[in-house]
Design a protein around this nucleic acid. Structure first.
Lengths: 236, 236
DNA sequence: ATATTTTTAGGACATATGTCCTCATTTTTA
DNA sequence: TAAAAATGAGGACATATGTCCTAAAAATAT
């Protein structure tokens, strides 16, 4: 990690992502003293297992992977940060040391809030604490849903849910707008907790059933309704 | 739910479970005005989906099941409250309405804190908020670990982890202390997210490998080391 | 432009797990 | 105590998913 001193850019981000909203208004100037822009190179760790947390990060740009690690060395990807988000909430409040690794997948930028001199203030800042509780509640809900989804639904269902959540609108040759899925398949397999082989097999089924079709750089969704039905609309 | 007015018992529980520690000391008397003992009959719901949360509960006694519901009507048990714990944290902070059902499995007692008149105070009580954040962080960590465990480990591994966590010390005929697992198998299958059939098959394997043995009212662990090894020591 | 690496594609086979049954045993209810 | 219901036990078979390989296609480096 390297720090980038750039007050102007910093101010820009503070406004863009409404960072003031995360804290008590009258505390903010205190916190601001300990905020810097941080840059992580591809592959670098933001937090490692059993390390004490030193910074809370507001993710700005790049791509960051959260995964848990098993003793056989395998990693289960839990989440990817691609849009704005907060990193370190779990680590800040969880006293036991979680077996989680957070690593930059691309060069990434965050706003780092050093905890050394601000922790006591943050622990007495109800706005911040409420935001953290909401964030954690949201992540918990996401994690529980995911857990149930994994237990009850076959990969076909989970894949459909994932297709919907990560496909993006693109124009095809004819100029029509369609949803196209362009993630790397190995990464998708990791997120879905399955083998590449099986993911591929399942994509083939969906192709054969004409719900998706292969296109130059990914898969195009051609029967969105059917995919929605197969996906997590499993949840009431 | 029925309320039980019993100031004496209430005071006893407040002390026994250190409920004062969950709040700002000088706010506590305010909260106390809105606390009562609540009794739920077997089968009754504490929270249902899409209902607004009215009480935060401190679970005292009985047994309460948390589960998520899929559209096919199936429920995935997520957690059982058997010892002291707090209910409603997720519901209090999660704005979206989660697909979660919380139901008493046995007649149960809680201390109910009505939120109608205390919410604004709780939202400005850093001690409470910090406790909630810690609780949510712990639950999130538990849920994520569970998720990874489910994805990477076969039922044999998960079952071993569960055996360890829920077996209890008992004396056998000779007076020696051993660990005995006495949960209902159908319930265990639900928690582990598997079919009764497969759970049973897996217990049989463990029996054949002489890690456990059938005893009058459950299974006795006879090779704890081996079970530990198969279990979540999967986690580094 | 060619060589090298990464990604996509899929065959063959083994294993984990689910569904559906049947029956014995235990617990609960009448 | 007898009848009914719940729980435990397990056979047979189908399906989901994993592992291991091999090869084509695409992306990247030399």
């Amino acid at each position: 990690m390297e720090f980038i001193e750039d007050e102007k850019k910093m101010g820009y981000y503070v406004d863009k992502f409404n960072l003031r909203n995360y804290f008590r208004e009258d505390f903010f100037s205190q916190y601001q003293k300990y905020m810097t822009i941080a840059r992580f190179s591809k592959g670098e760790y933001l937090y490692r297992q059993k390390e004490n947390i030193q910074y809370l990060y507001f993710f700005i740009e790049g791509k960051i992977k959260v995964s848990s690690v098993l003793s056989n060395g395998k990693r289960q990807a839990l989440y990817y940060y691609k849009k704005f988000g907060i990193l370190g909430d779990l680590e800040l409040f969880n006293r036991s040391n979680p077996y989680t690794i957070i690593q930059a997948e691309k060069d990434s930028y965050c706003i780092a809030l050093s905890l050394a001199y601000t922790k006591h203030l943050l622990y007495n800042d109800p706005v911040f604490l409420r935001n953290m509780a909401e964030l954690l509640a949201e992540k918990l809900y996401h994690s529980s849903s995911n857990f149930s989804l994994n237990i009850y639904c076959s990969l076909e269902n989970r894949l459909c849910a994932y297709l919907i959540s990560s496909a993006e609108k693109k124009r095809d040759e004819t100029g029509a707008e369609t949803l196209v899925f362009q993630e790397k398949l190995s990464e998708t397999a990791e997120i879905l907790g399955t083998s590449y082989r099986h993911l591929h097999r399942t994509l083939k089924y969906l192709k054969e059933e004409e719900l998706i079709e292969k296109c130059s750089n990914g898969y195009r969704i051609i029967n969105l309704e059917a995919i929605k039905q197969l996906s997590s609309e499993q949840f009431i």
